[in-house]
Design a protein around this nucleic acid. Sequence first.
RNA 1: GGGCUCGUAGUGUAGUGGUUAUCACGCCUCCCUGUCACGGAGGAGAUCACCGGUUCAAGUCCGGCCGGGCCCGCCA
Length: 438
Amino acid sequence: MTRTLTRELASKIGQTVTINGWLHKKRLMGGLNFITLRDRSGVAQTLIEDKDEIEKLRGLHIGTVLALTGTVVADDRAPGGAELHDVKVVVEVSVTDEPLIEVDKPISHKSEHLETLFDTRVLNIRNLQEQKIFKIRADLTYYIREFLRGQEFVEIDTPKLLAEATEGGSEVFKLDYFGKTATLAQSPQFFKQIMVGAYERVFEIGHSYRAEPSATTRHLTELTMLDIEMGFVEGHDEVLDMVGSMTQYVLKRVYEEHADDLKSLNAPELKLPEDGKVPRFTIAQIHEMYTKATKTDTTQEKDLIPDEERWISDYARKQLGTDLVYAVRFPIEAGKFYHKLDVEDGTVLWGDLLLRGLEVATVPLRENNYEKMLEQMKKAGLDVEHEGFKYYLQAFKYGLPKHGGCGFGVDRLVQKTIGLANVKEACLFPRDINRLTP
RNA sequence: GGGCUCGUAGUGUAGUGGUUAUCACGCCUCCCUGUCACGGAGGAGAUCACCGGUUCAAGUCCGGCCGGGCCCGCCA
């Protein structure tokens, strides 16, 4: 018999159907037994009164793969308003091992239980509540693509195995590459800028690798980044506006499409700026406001300290009614060689996008002049003749327009959208300084 | 890398230096015809992370070690 999905039951009242899926819950009450079956569309309840049929499930645990054939009956007492009666049970894959966790119960996300959460990932991902997180994640990246393609951005796919030299910044993983040293890409920085020379507007959703020994709630060693680069921009504001619009679009979409799931996951209410423009504060302004408000002097810091990120986000949410806020114009000494500098102002044209207290994206304008690039690279102590830089520099030599973009942490976006405490909870199989499995 | 903190049945937990280490869920057996975190009765399941020390006596105190977590630095 053709397979019926559990979500289709309500529309097949009176028919005899077969549903295939996993045993999700047994509620045995003597003569009246409820067996819940899970498939990709959800769960359905079946009622089994025949002792011989229920006996087939003796000793079999949650996860057992079943084919259940029966008559669809409408009943208000059944979840979803319909259930199967007079069920014939066929066991397709037996599970005889005692379950490690209770798949049908809430899975703890407390920080002290994260080790158990990831050690039992293979099973807890069968929990319906847990699955919501990753469906939301899947759709977030879908909405990102939807927005960017609508703006004529071309999706690209660039290598993660690189020659030794990279843009600097965070630590890179090194590995043996047939006797040579290769590194894992910490971002697609060089490639996306090179591709501006072809398509003007490009983006990539891919993995990046950071060898920083950071053990915090916001760091991963393998992370998913959305990298965007846009050519022929007038200035930094245009880049900030584009990334701001995209983020608002994506958040609005996910809050529309997943309203019930977000609510059940205790996601905060979404607050976006009424005029559609993400408010911006300079780093200097934030230092000043924070120092005044908390009596902790941060005016000598080059970046925001984590508590300032939380403070300015809190301020933006309460005073300006927005979950998104930009911190812009970093001090010039924080800049990297590929950043566009405003020497007169002593700042870098670089903004951090904060979502609910956490930096989710860096949004800089790039230096696009070949001679200035060489100058800034030499100043940074980099070998401009190195193989790893040669091809990157060719792009500038042969003409790159003024451009800017962002590196956007997808894991952090998922985390803060849902309101998860740790970025790892937004990952199916997170990689951090001490986890390589599962 | 620095600071703080936590390791007790499969899971989550209680545990003032002093009998047989608490409770809940899960698991096993039995009962149960409308459950939906079903309910009831009974049962099994823990070298209290590991190593050493103090003590008549250590899950508990001390030292070491291993493994987590949180914060900072750095970053998405």
